[in-house]
Design a protein around this nucleic acid. Structure first.
Length: 921
DNA sequence: GCAAGGTC
């Protein structure tokens, strides 16, 4: 760069705000002139500057993101113009869309008058690609341009001045990587979207589509994995079977407070094992303090705010959608109140003047006094912000750029978001909260329990960051070696629960971890799921798939393709990285990826029946005989007795089997699976006079002769309401047409779902699998020890004995088992899995004849009696007189009733939580 | 009518 005459330099930034900021910095606002370009958004700044001794006249303008779009050549644009498979090799072209033509003309006009072009696009791959778009336009207008790239990591004076004095050449590899990504996205997206839309749109009655012609069933490498996260969680919930567990809780009440100790074994799923340990504890209930640990705990403020955190926190704190958050943030940015809202960066540059930003906020009525304290050295509240480890090298973390106590045009959400940005920023430069934590461990009969208590000593950043709290409670003071008798020692039951539906913050988290989308596009992908009717969001910001979303994912899953998983995007991301660092060429990545995806597309098309089958589970076909209305009228079998909202209808599944399912599916999963030997089934007008709730319309069945025993008729007018013995027997003999479980994935199917389905068959009972009798289900078989054995896991440490006793409370037969624990190995006991009865065999006075009455209820009375009795040490037998109270588990051989036991759900001491009527499984 | 990525 030799000095000489003045060089005219065309500088182009990615957005108008950067053009203005950089022009301001370079010109030091001296001699800065502004004029309009052809685009009213992208003005042109002019000033003089010297680059390495070369006197320059600088023209500084901008684009607005990408200048060009990628599209198929005209002949392939119409949906029916070609086979979608052709889109993997159809010619594509880059062009400047209509709304960007003004910017293009400005660039052309200015480029003709300049000698140099300096590219100030964002320093990421997309920015580099946009840089080459600008180069293409400008070079076409002036092919003598000397082309340079400015590399900068923040809009800070020194960075910018250094950058312009150290110009480099643009990086073609970065731009190539984006070219590859664009082409792959377009070809995959367009081909699959056209394929599945044209296949399914007219084949099914997709009833929520208001205008059928506009229905597009889109596929995209970001939107589908996003949908996949939603569906996968939904399936996980559907597949969850509650499992009962047991835990021992210990509490100790003193004047100075209550300590609730947790059993350090946590949850035990083996009932017998838990009971044996509990028995040991109640026999030797003295607690000995084994450890007291006092320590200081710090709760650190969050990292500086980036886009994803802003979206997640606005969703958590205000239930704002990510899309709305970005809209409001954009408006706050445009009006100058916050910094650029699309940033990955969560660390401040060392050169940022953080104090000046805090000073701006000193006058605010809510957080102004906190800002003043922050700036006061004596308050010792200031702390350098932490580094979250992300830096996009283009934008700082989101922070306030202008003080405001609220503007007249602001909505409530503008106020909320501005407050979040300011409070978050003030929190970042604050000391962590300090707490004193105490952990106490005790030993009862060899079992360890622990409790922790916490008091906050200094709130520090929590004073300003009102969105976070730090829970904790005071506990009494203990010392090592101290002994006490617990106020309550209870054996409590609970059930495992499925995880919740994904919240918007969860979904953003999943996408972030899997690399789906960018900080600027994640909210768009989420919105797309809603717009395409693939998912819904409830008032609690939790997402459920719609029937359509679930069917699409199910269809591809059945094909064996993981197109709904994030792996495809991850693979593409790896390839892009390889292109950008030069280890792979763009052409090579394009060829390999598109070849694979085309093979996948062709295979998916061959297996389209899987998509059709999945859709048929949820939607009526369009091309069936008769009109939808007529068909729907004759299909109704009965009102659903489970949800009491929808009707149950007769359906034939794609595999030919029949079922009667609730139209409220998937909210209501009530279903009656019918024998697999049915060839035809037609709902009649005959109403069953014994089944309720009615009317229950009888179904005319025709069975396949060779698939049923010879003494049954092939024609049968049957009822699915529960009264039809013939149907029950044929169901048992022939099996049902319930869905076969796949070998992979938790989809509410598999072995889990088979039993789930069994539980859902509520309207018709088959033949008992234990005694082969009708009239009761296998779950209710009187020959079985407990009705609930199928739900509750069998004890690993016990085995069934040969004899049993029954109680005078619930009448359940209780199996004789053998304990296998260290202290009681080989000892026999009876346990009832229905009402918590437990008794050692040797305390039943040697009489273990089946049918003997054992008083379950005596435990309950013992539990109610003498709440202080356990503290008084062992004494004479208490509890119920007359009956052999020694047989009960809580009035043990010493006769000591244990106090404080009650249901942890409703507090009633007459039962345990596992049989609580209020229990919500 | 299709993707995802910029940006206003």
């Amino acid at each position: 760069m030799a000095a000489g005459r003045t060089v005219r330099v065309l500088n182009v930034a990615e957005k108008p705000s950067v053009a203005k900021a950089v022009a301001g910095i370079l010109s030091r606002n001296q001699g800065l002139r502004v004029r309009n370009g052809r685009s009213r958004f992208n003005r042109i700044f002019e000033f003089d500057y010297s680059i390495r001794g070369q006197h320059c006249h600088m023209l500084f303008t901008s684009v607005t993101g990408h200048l060009m779009e990628l599209e198929f050549e005209e002949r392939y644009r119409k949906w029916h113009s070609c086979d979608p498979a052709d889109l993997y090799h159809a010619p594509v072209r880059k062009f400047v869309p209509q709304d960007k033509l003004d910017i293009k003309r400005t660039l052309e006009e200015e480029a003709r008058k300049c000698q140099w072009l300096v590219l100030w696009l964002d320093c990421d791959r997309e920015g580099e690609n946009i840089a080459f778009e600008v180069v293409e336009i400008c070079s076409a207008a002036n092919n003598h341009l000397n082309i340079w790239r400015a590399r900068f990591s923040a809009l800070i004076d020194r960075e910018i001045h250094e950058s312009v004095q150290n110009l480099v050449r643009p990086n073609q590899l970065f731009a190539d990587a984006v070219d590859a990504r664009q082409e792959i996205d377009l070809r995959i997206g367009a081909s699959f979207t056209r394929f599945q839309t044209m296949l399914l749109k007219d084949a099914f009655v997709i009833d929520f589509a208001t205008d059928d012609r506009n229905l597009v069933l889109s596929y995209g490498p970001c939107q589908f994995p996003t949908l996949g996260f939603v569906v996968e969680r939904y399936w996980e919930i559907q597949a969850h079977e509650p499992e009962e567990f047991w835990t021992i809780n210990c509490s100790h009440t003193l004047d100075e407070g209550i300590a609730t100790f947790n059993w350090m074994r946590g949850h035990i799923f083996d009932y017998t094992y838990a009971v044996i340990i509990y028995e040991m504890c109640t026999l030797e209930p003295t607690a000995t303090v084994t450890k007291v640990k006092n320590q200081e705990k710090l709760k650190y403020p969050p990292h500086p705010l980036n886009t994803i955190e802003l979206e997640k926190r606005a969703s958590r704190y205000f239930r704002m959608s990510s899309e709305h958050t970005m809209k409001v943030a954009e408006e706050l940015y445009q009006s100058g109140f916050i910094s650029y809202p699309r940033t990955e960066t969560d660390c401040f540059s060392a050169r940022t003047d953080l104090h000046a930003m805090v000073q701006e906020q000193q006058g605010h009525p809510l957080w102004g006094s906190y800002a003043q304290r922050l700036l006061d050295p004596e308050a010792r509240l200031w702390r350098s912000p932490s580094n979250g480890g992300h830096d996009d090298k283009a934008h700082p973390p989101i922070h306030p750029t202008k003080y405001s106590a609220g503007e007249s045009g602001w909505s409530q959400d503008h106020h909320r978001l501005y407050e979040l940005v300011v409070r978050h920023f003030l929190a970042c430069v604050s000391q962590p909260a300090i707490g004193a934590e105490t952990i106490v461990e005790i030993d009862i009969a060899g079992e360890q329990f622990s409790v922790s208590g916490r008091v906050i000593l200094q709130k520090n950043y929590l004073d300003v960051y009102r969105f976070e709290s730090w829970g904790g409670s005071m506990i009494p003071t203990y010392s090592v070696g101290q002994q006490f008798i617990p106020t309550a020692l209870t054996l409590d039951s609970g059930v495992t629960r499925p995880p919740p539906l994904l919240s918007e913050a969860d979904l953003l988290n999943c996408m972030d971890k899997a690399g789906i989308g960018t900080d600027a596009t994640m909210h768009d992908h989420i919105k797309k799921l809603l717009d395409r009717c693939y998912a819904t969001k409830d008032s609690n910001t939790r997402f459920s798939p719609t029937n359509l979303g679930e069917a699409l994912v199910m269809g591809y899953d059945d094909m064996g393709y993981e197109l709904w998983k994030p792996y495809l995007r991850s693979m593409m991301e790896c390839d892009m990285k390889a292109v950008s660092i030069g280890t792979k060429r763009k052409a090579e990545v394009l060829e390999t990826c598109l070849q694979q995806m085309k093979a996948c597309f062709l295979d998916a098309r061959l297996n389209k029946v899987k998509l059709l089958e999945a859709m048929a589970i949820f939607f009526e076909r369009c091309n069936r005989p008769g009109t939808n209305e007529q068909q729907g009228a004759v299909d109704i079998v009965r009102p659903c007795s489970a949800c009491q909202e929808s009707n149950m209808v007769l359906k034939r599944k794609p595999d030919g089997n029949f079922m009667v399912g609730c139209l409220g599916f998937p909210q209501c999963r009530n279903v009656v699976w019918l024998p697999g030997s049915i060839s035809t089934a037609t709902v009649t007008n005959h109403i069953c006079d014994s089944c309720s709730p009615g009317p229950v319309f009888k179904i005319q069945f025709k069975f396949r002769r060779l698939e049923i025993p010879s003494d049954y008729d092939v024609d049968h007018l049957g009822c699915i309401g529960g009264c039809d013995e013939t149907l029950k027997q044929l169901t048992e003999i022939c099996g049902t047409g319930s869905r076969n479980p796949p070998s992979t994935s938790a989809r509410g199917r598999g072995t889990t779902a088979s039993s789930t389905n069994a539980q859902r068959v509520s309207t018709m009972q088959g033949v008992c699998e234990h005694c082969r009798q009708t009239g009761h289900s296998s779950n209710d078989c009187p020959t079985q020890v407990s009705r609930r054995q199928s739900v509750r896991p069998r004890g690993r440490n016990s085995q069934r004995g040969g004899s049993s006793v029954s109680c005078n409370s619930c009448g359940t037969l209780c199996a004789l088992r053998t304990a296998n624990t260290a202290n009681n190995r080989g000892r026999k006991f009876y346990s009832c899995q229905e009402c918590n009865f437990f008794v050692w065999e040797d305390s039943v006075n040697g009489n273990n004849t089946q049918g003997q009455s054992v008083p379950h209820a005596s435990y309950r009375r013992a539990a109610n009696s003498g709440s202080n009795s356990s503290r008084r040490g062992r004494r004479g037998r208490g509890g119920r007189s007359g009956a052999s109270t020694t047989n009960t588990r809580f009035v043990s051989a010493t006769g000591e009733p244990v106090s404080g036991m009650s249901c942890y759900i409703c507090g009633d001491p007459s039962h345990f939580a596992n049989v609580c009527p209020d229990r919500d499984i």
